[in-house]
Design a protein around this nucleic acid. Structure first.
Length: 256
DNA sequence: ATGGCGACAGTTTGTCGA
């Protein structure tokens, strides 16, 4: 089973998403930043591409979706627990052929410090609490995300530039480390322990052409199933297409 | 700390993202 995560930066501005789907055909796809109301999700085009989908839209911002070509496809939850007042569309969870898939879009958190950074850390705490419950299941679990966290200095072309940014501040990195320590493996980093590679390049200044990027989109797997991850990578060339997102798709392949 | 660029809302400028 091949599982991909892709922050599309506006699903309706992104015809390249359909091209990427048809050319790479992942079994499961987690999308973030739909930037579309619920009834503006292009379900017809997605189905024409061979996928079923569940999605959670929102006006202007955020929005997440899970797409699959697999047989078993059951929505589990549409909200991250512990804050009923949180109205931002950032979490979806589904069971796909025996694998529990969490699709999430962690808040950016800038400017930091400030209320947006506080919201990011609170959201992260709720995620870590929920992830602990998921660890109790005996099934493989994949958390596929735009995490908006640069985990280490190996994950940015110029780490110094991001020292005071919400993506790289000590609190954000500590929250990510704490989540991993609670029983999760950063699967792409496990496959490629020492090389720099990125999933995001800013639109400005020909950042992609200069390979001035960040690794902020991650696929976490619960530790007991980490040895099932047999391959993975970033479909980096998609970032070079016209009218493309500022992120590139990242994916892993599970042996099961 | 700013810059710079792109999407969206809904009108021409503001907000947000990373």
């Amino acid at each position: 089973m091949r599982i991909a995560t892709y922050n599309v930066n506006g699903i309706n501005a992104r015809l390249p998403v359909l091209r990427w789907l048809s050319e790479t055909a992942p079994d499961v796809v987690c999308l973030q930043e739909l930037k579309a109301l619920q009834d503006r999700f292009p379900i017809g085009a997605i189905e024409d591409a061979g996928y079923r989908a569940i999605w959670k839209g929102q006006k202007s911002w955020n929005g997440v979706a899970i797409l699959t070509r697999c047989t078993e496809f059951q929505e589990i939850r549409r909200l991250l627990p512990s804050d009923d007042a949180d109205e931002q569309s950032r979490y979806l969870e589904a069971l796909v052929d025996g694998v529990l898939i969490g699709c999430l879009y962690l808040p950016n958190g800038n400017p930091a410090p400030g209320p947006k950074f506080d919201y990011k850390l609170r959201w992260f705490d709720r995620l870590t609490q929920h992830a602990a419950r998921l660890l109790a299941t005996q099934t493989p679990v994949i958390l596929a995300d735009d995490f908006n966290v640069i985990p280490t200095e190996l994950d940015a072309s110029n780490p110094q530039r991001w020292l005071h940014d919400a993506l790289f501040r000590p609190e954000s990195r500590a929250a990510y480390e704490q989540l991993l320590a609670s029983g999760w493996i950063d699967s792409l980093r496990q496959l490629t322990p020492t090389e720099r590679f990125y999933t995001y390049w800013d639109y400005f200044g020909r950042a992609y052409q200069r390979n001035d990027g960040l690794r902020i989109d991650h696929l976490l797997v619960n530790a007991p199933f980490a040895d099932q991850v047999v391959d993975g990578g970033v479909d980096q060339w998609v970032r070079g297409w016209e009218k493309t997102s500022d992120h590139a798709p990242a994916w892993i392949k599970l042996a099961l």
